[in-house]
Amino acid sequence: MFKSTTIHKKMLNCLCCPYAYIKTLIFFLIMLFLGDIPLLAQENVEVFPSAPYDRFIIYQALVLFWIGIIGLIVIIKMKLKEIERIQDMGIDKEEKDIPFLD
């Protein structure tokens, strides 16, 4: 009974006072959008971590990963150059009938 009276009073206030009417309208609009939030989330699934700290860690890992890749490429390139130098000198071929050294 008490609740019903309060609601009636509020409704009357809404009808009489335009300020209260706007307030109620805004309240309903907010409630409407709040109700839609799960739907919006369903449409745009976050395919990448959204927390700034997570993002920072991921980008930092990416930079470190590229540094590692470049480092490995430099090492392989140096090794390849050395092999090619030895091949050009012709000292990479095994001689036949070479005595074994124990």
């Binding site: 890749i69 490429i73 390849l80």
Partner: peptide
């Protein structure tokens, strides 16, 4: 090892590109 080493270099770059695009 000559061609295999060059293969490794290309594979490393490809791995980097795939990871970068994925992120």
């Amino acid at each position: 090892p000559n061609v295999l080493y060059k293969d490794f270099i290309i594979w490393l770059v490809a791995l980097g590109v795939v990871v970068t695009l994925s992120i």
